[in-house]
């Protein structure tokens, strides 16, 4: 490793020298993580978003990159929008699950061309309002939004101030809930749990006591296996009905989730880039891994190993 230390020192000296002489430009759009490529290994940096489904994608990709292709993988947890920015600067090489960010897509993919699309993940995402299934059995008509006001007293909590509580999760997630409550004239208060971890903890506590709750939630999500939930029907989604975020009065769309790669990495990332472009699995697969991570508390690496051991044919195709 002496060699690498020396290169680093030489590079540092060179940088200082050019800093002092003031010549040359330092391009902020081309910056890798300082922890990348340590000890001569090829490193891929993946962005992990805060939800467990995203952790599963990354865990399996990481496992295969490390064990089949000989890469070293660094992961960084970044929120969705900042992750786009980090991706465009090369601080991360890939995002494996994106739920649709039209503004960022226009800016970085179409205009600046610093991010390249990496194809679909194979999983379709859907956001909606959910209630626990035990509650839907008690009150069958509660699953229509028109009847929500009738039941608002069921969902009252200390935080919702006399109205029913609609629980939202992390502020980083795509949500129109405040506008929806407003435009559908619902007697509800949106309460932000602040993070998905907090939201899940609260939902499990509620379901343990069979208490009613109404929450913003999304599929695919491993929690459905633990807390069965039924979706509340909102006015149907039509193309463009969510164009004006203040006037939204319709349900969320079904989004085929996308992968994105840093443009340079997509071009010159070798086997790793090719592998990540081919990475494509089903909702079922993702849930299996997520459940192992979040419910059985396996480490992401162990969960990935278990899945990889039993799904050879699926991932062999990604490597070819």
């Amino acid at each position: 490793m002496r060699f690498h230390r020396k290169t680093a020192l030489v590079a540092a000296a060179a940088a200082t020298a050019s800093l002092l002489t003031g010549c040359g430009a330092a391009d902020m759009t081309k910056q890798a993580s300082p922890f990348a490529n340590a000890q001569g290994s090829k490193t891929v940096t993946l962005s992990v978003q805060s939800w467990v489904g995203a952790q599963s994608n990354v865990a399996v990709a990481q496992y295969l990159l490390e064990h089949e292709l000989g890469y070293r993988v660094d992961t960084v947890q970044v929120d969705e929008v900042p992750a786009w920015d980090a991706l465009s600067q090369g601080r991360v090489d890939a995002i494996l699950e994106d739920w649709g960010h039209p503004d960022q897509e226009k800016r970085y993919v179409k205009d600046k061309k610093t991010i390249a699309p990496g194809g679909g993940l194979g999983v379709t995402g859907h956001i909606g309002w959910f209630i626990p299934t035990y509650l839907a059995k008690q009150h069958p008509d509660i699953t229509d939004w028109k009847n929500l006001n009738k039941y608002s007293s069921l969902f009252r909590t200390a935080e919702s101030g006399g109205k029913g509580q609609l629980m939202d999760g992390s502020p980083s997630y795509v949500t129109n809930d405040k506008a929806l409550v407003n435009n559908l004239k619902l007697n509800y208060q949106v309460v932000f749990a602040g993070s998905e971890a907090a939201q899940i903890t609260q939902m499990r506590q509620f379901s343990k006591e069979k208490k009613p709750f109404l929450t913003y939630w999304y599929s695919p999500q491993w929690l459905f296996k633990k807390v069965p939930m039924t979706e509340v029907k909102l006015p149907p989604y039509k193309d463009g009905c969510d164009a004006d975020t203040a006037k939204v009065a319709c349900a969320y769309p079904h989004t085929p989730l996308q992968k994105y790669l840093n443009a340079d990495f997509a071009k010159s990332g070798g086997k790793a880039a090719a592998f990540l472009k081919k990475f494509h699995w089903t909702t079922e697969d993702q849930n299996q891994v997520s459940l192992m991570i979040a419910d059985q508390k396996l480490s992401p690496a162990d969960a990935a190993k278990k899945w990889v051991d039993t799904h050879r044919s699926t991932w062999k195709a990604w490597l070819s």
Partner: peptide, 21 residues
């Protein structure tokens, strides 16, 4: 960015990397 902040940023990355290695 090119002539000032970029260098600050690079200097940080390089020195962290140096220590890490």
């Amino acid at each position: 960015f090119l002539y000032f902040l970029g260098y600050v940023s690079n200097a940080v990355v390089l020195s962290v990397r140096g220590v890490y290695l």
